[in-house]
């Protein structure tokens, strides 16, 4: 049995330790908010936090998460209360098809945790691993900046 903490809950998994975390989350734990887009670390659709750091779960074996704490999109809101970035996403009407958005949000949350006041360029650099084929980049940037600015206080 492999033990990891997912969204604050300790879970036990009976899977191949080499299996990417993505499939453990989606199929063993039913957390389908994390998406498959490329399978090889190129698109960011599968982004989750591993001990607070953003990782591509399609390229992270379950074994790398042993004893660690994983946060997925489902663990971001505190019940009814959305994370400020989720709120900003709604304010800016970011999603189109929505498929890339879990990964985008998880990357953006990690960015602001690392750098509360990112410049445009820092946002672009940080987010460049997250693809949105529908083309929501300008709105994502706006949403991130909205939260960054409001933090300035």
């Amino acid at each position: 049995m492999l033990r990891i903490t997912v969204n604050g809950k300790l879970v036990e998994l009976d899977v191949d330790p080499e299996m990417p975390l993505l499939y453990a989350l989606r199929e063993n734990l039913g957390l389908t908010g994390t998406k498959f887009g490329c399978g090889v670390g190129l698109c960011g659709a599968c982004t989750v936090h591993l001990d607070g750091e953003p990782v591509r779960s399609c390229a992270t074996p379950v074994s790398a998460a042993l004893g660690s704490s994983v946060t997925t999109i489902e663990g971001l809101a505190k019940g009814e209360a959305l994370h400020p970035l989720q709120e900003a996403w709604l304010d800016n009407k970011v999603p189109q098809c929505g498929y890339c958005q879990s990964g985008q949000i998880m990357s953006a949350v990690a960015l602001l945790e690392e750098n509360a006041q990112p410049s445009d360029e820092q946002i672009e650099d940080w987010m460049q691993g997250n693809i949105c084929r529908c083309g929501t980049y300008p709105r994502i940037k706006k949403a991130i900046k909205q939260v960054a600015t409001s933090k300035k206080g």
Binding site: T32, K35, A77, Q86, K93, P95
Partner: peptide, 12 residues
């Protein structure tokens, strides 16, 4: 469904 999307709740 925007809120369901940002919560990761929509189904594809």
């Amino acid at each position: 469904w925007q809120e369901q999307i940002v919560r990761g709740e929509t189904v594809y």
